[in-house]
Amino acid sequence: MSRLAALMPWNCTDYELVRCGTIAEIAGIVLLVITVLVHNPLLLVILIPLGSILILLGWIAWVWAFVRGF
């Protein structure tokens, strides 16, 4: 299995999914905290979608692990 294929969610264990998901959610929350503190238009345009996507990816990872029986 290539290194890239090994990173795909369907090749990860539930534990790995939860670990990656927590990191994605933490990163997303940190980015959004910046948008809460700094109301710069450019930062908002970049960080709101990026932070939201990271949190949602973390959430999907958790749901994935949960559905598989975590």
């Binding site: 939860v18 998901g21 927590t22 959610e25 997303g28 929350i29 959004l32 905290v33 948008t35 809460v36 109301h39 908002l44 709101i48 932070g51 939201s52 949190i55 949602l56 973390g58 959430w59 958790w62 749901v63 949960f66």
Partner: peptide, 16 residues
């Protein structure tokens, strides 16, 4: 992991 971050995301986006 499943509930708190989603609620927080909603609050942060609404605030911003």
């Amino acid at each position: 992991m499943g509930i708190l971050p989603i609620f927080w995301l909603g609050g942060a986006v609404q605030y911003t």
